[in-house]
Simulated scan of single mutants.
Amino acid sequence: MKLAKALIIRGDLQKKLSDTKNIIQKNSVVHKESNPNIDPNEMIVKANRIIDELDNLMERIHRTNTLAKTSDGRTMLKLLTERDTLRNRHKLLTSTIESTTKTHDSYFGERYHDLENIKVTVPVADLQKQADDISMKMRHLNITIQENNWHIDLLD
């Protein structure tokens, strides 16, 4: 099985587990003269089977990401950590840019209504360019990750 297929199955299992948890919660308490639509005890057993299957699959995915090498010699884990680093840098820049567009009331309270007293202390245009550059790097990295996911076999 290819890594990409395993990732799709992981998503399906996570959704199935979430749905099962919701069913358990909705059927755990009923009126004393009623019965639940679905036996929550049976659903707990089912949820535990899903968790076991997910655990096994996740271990294989992590092992594959740690050991599998891409055509340029990097591991999938390295690509994924690079993507996380880029996301963190992008969030830092975009949140800083967003903070410069807040109204002065959110910073100084209603007593300051004179916009002339507000000063932006960061180079917004430069930060935006950096954020755009990081976005482009993330897109290219995501393409590389996706391509490799369809070529790498999931390890046992």
Rank of each mutant, 00 (worst) to 15 (best):
L3M: 15
K5F: 06
A6F: 06
A6Y: 03
I8P: 00
I8C: 00
I9E: 08
I9T: 09
I9C: 06
I9S: 10
R10T: 01
L13K: 07
Q14I: 10
K15H: 09
K16A: 15
L17P: 01
S18M: 10
D19I: 00
T20D: 01
T20P: 01
K21C: 01
K21S: 11
I24Q: 06
I24E: 10
Q25S: 11
K26V: 08
S28Q: 15
S28M: 13
V29A: 11
V29F: 13
V30C: 05
H31D: 13
K32Q: 10
K32I: 06
K32M: 11
E33L: 02
S34F: 15
N41A: 08
N41H: 14
N41Q: 15
M43A: 14
V45W: 03
K46C: 04
K46N: 13
A47G: 10
N48W: 03
R49A: 15
D52E: 14
L54Q: 08
D55T: 13
N56E: 14
L57H: 00
L57K: 04
L57Q: 09
L57D: 07
L57A: 04
M58L: 15
M58K: 11
R60D: 06
R63E: 09
R63T: 14
N65V: 04
N65C: 11
T66W: 01
A68F: 03
A68P: 02
K69C: 07
T70C: 04
S71Q: 15
S71C: 04
D72W: 03
R74A: 09
T75I: 03
M76W: 01
K78N: 15
K78R: 12
L79A: 01
L80T: 07
E82V: 03
R83Y: 14
D84L: 12
L86N: 14
L86V: 12
H90W: 11
H90Y: 15
K91P: 06
L92V: 09
T94C: 02
I97K: 01
I97A: 00
T100W: 12
T101C: 01
K102F: 05
T103P: 05
T103L: 07
H104D: 13
S106H: 09
F108Q: 07
F108C: 08
G109A: 07
G109L: 06
E110D: 12
R111L: 12
H113F: 05
L115M: 15
L115P: 04
N117P: 02
V120F: 02
T121Q: 04
T121D: 06
T121H: 05
V122A: 09
P123Y: 09
V124F: 09
V124I: 11
A125L: 10
A125F: 11
A125Y: 14
D126E: 13
L127V: 04
Q130I: 03
Q130C: 05
A131L: 06
D132W: 03
S135A: 07
M138S: 04
R139A: 10
R139W: 00
H140I: 05
L141C: 04
L141K: 03
N142H: 08
I143Y: 15
E147R: 13
W150I: 06
I152G: 05
I152N: 05
I152W: 03
D153Q: 12
L154I: 11
L154F: 06
D156E: 13
